[in-house]
């Protein structure tokens, strides 16, 4: 038999098998990473919603304070709930308190929640509200 008469069916070499396994492994690993990112996203969404609820809680509590007591310093010392402080890095609450006269005499308060997630600064969540200057 001459060489050209040998079977022409191409066989898989070990190298090809290894490459195929690597590709399969890569796809599985990418899918795993993707799922992990989705889980992280869900967790961060939950944290974001809890921050919103907490900012609204702070607004309600500040509204019960006499207006002359409301200041940036008071807000800066506001205790941060444990469930938030455990889930984000370096949580901090700040506020800007401005007195406005129009359309009525009131305090314009902007609360900002600063934190870091996965070692990165995130855009602060803010809540602006007005408090009658009674």
């Amino acid at each position: 038999m001459t060489l050209h008469q040998s079977q022409t069916r191409a066989a898989n070499t070990s190298f090809e098998i290894v490459i195929a396994i690597l590709i399969l492994g890569l796809v599985a690993s990418s899918l795993g990473q993707f799922v992990h990112h989705i889980r992280n996203g869900l967790d961060q969404r939950d944290v974001a919603q809890r921050i919103d609820f907490w900012l609204e809680n702070v607004r309600e509590e500040l509204a019960c304070q006499p207006p002359e007591k409301v200041s940036s310093d008071l807000v800066a010392e506001w205790p941060i709930p444990q469930d938030l402080s455990q889930r984000v890095e370096a949580p901090r609450l700040s506020a800007s308190v401005k007195k406005i006269e129009h359309p009525l005499s009131a305090l314009e308060i902007t609360l900002s929640f600063h934190c870091r997630l996965s070692h990165q600064d995130v855009t602060p969540k803010t809540l602006t509200f007005w408090m009658a200057d009674r």
Partner: peptide, 13 residues
């Protein structure tokens, strides 16, 4: 091993 891993990842996803 890989097919088992894929099955787990698929179930997880």
């Amino acid at each position: 091993i890989l097919i088992s891993l894929c099955a787990i990842v698929l179930q997880w996803s």
